[in-house]
Computed example of a mutant assay.
Amino acid sequence: MKKIMSWLTIIGLAGFLAGCSNNTEGSSDSSSSGSDDTIQIGVSAFPGWYTWYAVEGFNQFEKNGVDVELVWFNTYSDSLQAFNSGNIDGVCAALSDTISPALNDVDFKVVLVNDNSAGADGIVAQSKYESLKDLRGQTVATEVGTIEHFFLLSALETVGMDENDINLTNMTVETAGPAVIAGQVEAASLWEPSLSYAASEGDTNLLFDSSETPGLIPDTLMMSGDMLENRSDDVQKVVDAYFDGMADYVENPDEALGFMAEQADISTDEMAAAMAGARLFSVADNNSAFHDEAEDYTYLPYTAEKTAEFLLEQEMVSKELSDPTSIFDSTYIDALYEENPDLAVPDTQAE
């Protein structure tokens, strides 16, 4: 029962629960509790982004001389809205969710990649459905306009289907998991930890996950143009703090998982299991993703270009992304790579 209640807390089964945050009341109210110098970064419930709470737990923001407040959002799309409206300074976002703000002239850049989803996103269905093709004509839940919508459409494309072949219903990730368990929908497109909960606690099948689409879903840190222009040194400190925190994670994995699990209100074992679906990016991985030009998903601008094309085909955006490189600013990774190219990150998939 304790385990079940822990998972119910993190996925927000009851919308009126207080939420998991140590820093806010778990809503999209991003009013700062710090000074004008505090950098607010929006974080949501995805394993690769819980790593920021390890960075905070190891006091790496303070050690690097930067004042950062991690602002928790129970609903991922609320964090994007807060960032795009200028209410927070940075946000953890899937690369696919950088396309629309770029096309709508939101002033930002992607400054680092936390991870690639490698099993942390998936499609869970009631057990009578054994393949994606079985979902033809069935009700499938996702949070429309977000990465899970994009992932669902990409998954359907692998079996020659599209959105017109299903009955799509709009639900947040926090509510879609419980809905598929309860039989209210036939399937749902989810990310961790909602994914593991829905796949393990109900009479359900995991039909497809992001390990089958390697590189499709990079998870990034977006920083506002104002921060980049006026506080570039502090942005560098944020990036440095992140990778110092990951080095601490390598040396003290149980302690790191403890910080992350406390934020998620789950056990360290559950957090380790959730992290197995995220391949964390080192400084070297970031450098390669920014600079090593390739016609595949290892290269960020290529991924952005193909993602934007897909979103346009699906009419999820209204125009082409003319210059995919415009989304990225490698300045901060470049500086860190030059200084310490061998900074490591945990091999979470080996856990």
Results as ranks from 00 to 15, higher is better:
residue 163 E to Y: 05
residue 120 A to Q: 04
residue 62 E to W: 04
residue 341 P to M: 10
residue 328 F to D: 04
residue 139 T to Q: 15
residue 96 S to W: 10
residue 177 G to Y: 07
residue 126 Q to S: 14
residue 293 E to Y: 02
residue 206 L to N: 09
residue 68 V to S: 04
residue 207 L to W: 07
residue 327 I to E: 01
residue 83 F to P: 01
residue 325 T to A: 08
residue 258 G to Y: 02
residue 177 G to H: 09
residue 76 Y to V: 00
residue 142 T to L: 03
residue 46 F to Q: 09
residue 234 D to W: 01
residue 347 D to Q: 15
residue 210 S to T: 07
residue 284 A to Y: 00
residue 51 T to D: 11
residue 323 D to I: 00
residue 166 I to E: 01
residue 183 G to K: 12
residue 264 A to I: 05
residue 173 V to E: 07
residue 29 D to G: 03
residue 208 F to Y: 14
residue 247 A to V: 15
residue 160 G to F: 00
residue 125 A to Q: 12
residue 71 V to A: 10
residue 326 S to P: 00
residue 7 W to E: 09
residue 256 A to M: 14
residue 245 G to P: 07
residue 150 F to K: 11
residue 188 A to T: 06
residue 345 V to P: 10
residue 94 A to R: 12
residue 350 A to E: 15
residue 258 G to Q: 03
residue 317 V to A: 13
residue 136 R to M: 05
residue 101 P to E: 08
residue 129 Y to N: 10
residue 349 Q to H: 09
residue 17 L to S: 09
residue 247 A to Q: 13
residue 205 N to S: 12
residue 182 A to R: 14
residue 33 S to K: 14
residue 273 A to Y: 14
residue 43 V to S: 06
residue 217 I to P: 05
residue 63 K to A: 13
residue 89 D to A: 06
residue 64 N to L: 08
residue 325 T to V: 02
residue 150 F to A: 15
residue 300 L to W: 04
residue 265 D to F: 13
residue 79 S to W: 01
residue 309 E to K: 11
residue 7 W to D: 09
residue 201 E to M: 08
residue 139 T to H: 11
residue 64 N to H: 09
residue 107 D to C: 00
residue 172 T to I: 03
residue 86 G to T: 02
residue 236 Q to Y: 02
residue 320 E to T: 13
residue 276 A to W: 00
residue 24 T to P: 03
residue 294 A to T: 06
residue 348 T to W: 14
residue 89 D to P: 08
residue 269 D to M: 13
residue 205 N to A: 09
residue 158 T to I: 00
residue 351 E to G: 15
residue 99 I to V: 15
residue 131 S to T: 12
residue 2 K to T: 15
residue 93 A to L: 11
residue 68 V to P: 04
residue 219 D to S: 12
residue 8 L to T: 11
residue 184 Q to V: 11
residue 95 L to R: 11
residue 169 T to Y: 02
residue 108 F to Q: 05
residue 206 L to K: 12
residue 10 I to T: 13
residue 58 F to K: 14
residue 35 S to N: 09
residue 242 Y to N: 02
residue 143 E to Q: 15
residue 7 W to A: 08
residue 349 Q to A: 14
residue 168 L to M: 06
residue 207 L to Y: 02
residue 22 N to A: 12
residue 295 E to D: 10
residue 254 D to V: 09
residue 337 Y to T: 03
residue 226 D to N: 04
residue 156 L to F: 06
residue 130 E to I: 00
residue 204 T to Q: 07
residue 4 I to L: 15
residue 167 N to Q: 08
residue 212 E to K: 11
residue 163 E to M: 05
residue 302 Y to L: 06
residue 172 T to A: 07
residue 346 P to Y: 08
residue 8 L to S: 12
residue 57 G to H: 11
residue 323 D to T: 06
residue 125 A to D: 12
residue 117 S to Q: 13
residue 263 Q to V: 07
residue 151 F to D: 07
residue 29 D to I: 05
residue 90 G to S: 10
residue 141 A to D: 04
residue 206 L to P: 04
residue 250 V to W: 14
residue 312 L to T: 10
residue 347 D to L: 13
residue 335 A to E: 11
residue 8 L to V: 11
residue 3 K to P: 05
residue 164 N to G: 11
residue 171 M to F: 10
residue 209 D to K: 03
residue 146 T to C: 03
residue 162 D to W: 02
residue 342 D to A: 03
residue 144 V to A: 08
residue 222 M to P: 07
residue 109 K to Y: 01
